Simulated scan of single mutants.
Amino acid sequence: MTFIPLYDKIVVKKINLENKIGKIFIPTNDNEIIKGEVVETGEGYLLTDGSIKPLIIKKRDNIIFKDNYNIEKYKFDNIEYYFIKEKDIISIIK
């Protein structure tokens, strides 16, 4: 399946985190921070003069973001996809 996000939308595939270190399990909470890989990005922000400002985020960047009420989700072939805006991203992971 191919996604073609519009403008400042970004498609992110969730990366499942291991919730243990060695034999020690680390609890998770409801306000989960999600790690994901950017699958596709839109062209950028549409400015009032009609021009487009490119996004900072690029394909294949690993990012973290907080799952909240305004993020749209889609599940396909047991893979969770999130449709977010660049402003929802907390950090790029290098």
Rank of each mutant, 00 (worst) to 15 (best):
E72Q: 14
I79G: 09
L55W: 04
I93V: 14
G36I: 00
D30G: 15
I52V: 15
E18S: 11
E72M: 11
S51D: 10
V39D: 12
N68V: 05
K20F: 11
M1Q: 14
I15A: 05
D49G: 08
N16D: 15
G44R: 03
K66W: 04
K35G: 04
K13T: 01
Y81V: 03
I56R: 06
S91E: 12
I4W: 07
K87I: 12
I90H: 07
I15R: 06
E80H: 13
K9G: 13
L55P: 00
E37F: 03
L47S: 10
I92G: 07
N68A: 00
Y45R: 07
M1Y: 12
F3T: 01
I33M: 09
I34S: 00
F3R: 01
K73W: 00
P5N: 10
G36M: 01
L17S: 06
F3C: 00
V39F: 06
L47M: 14
K53Y: 09
E80T: 12
E43M: 14
I21D: 12
G36K: 02
T41F: 10
L47I: 04
Y82E: 01
D49T: 14
E37Q: 07
Y81P: 02
Y82T: 03
D88S: 11
K59G: 03
N62A: 02
F76D: 00
Y74R: 03
Y74M: 04
F3A: 02
S91Y: 04
I10H: 07
K58S: 07
I52Q: 08
Y74V: 02
I34F: 02
D88L: 07
K85M: 10
I71A: 01
E40P: 09
N29D: 14
G50K: 13
K9S: 15
K85D: 10
K59P: 11
K87G: 01
D61W: 06
S91W: 06
N70T: 07
E40C: 15
D61T: 08
D67N: 12
I15G: 05
N78C: 06
E40D: 15
N16P: 09
L47A: 04
K73M: 04
D49I: 13
Y45W: 14
F83V: 03
L55K: 01
K53W: 10
N62Y: 03
I84E: 05
T28L: 11
N62R: 04
I24F: 15
Y82R: 03
K14L: 02
K85N: 12
N70D: 11
F65Q: 02
N78L: 10
I64P: 14
N68S: 07
I63G: 03
K87A: 06
L46E: 07
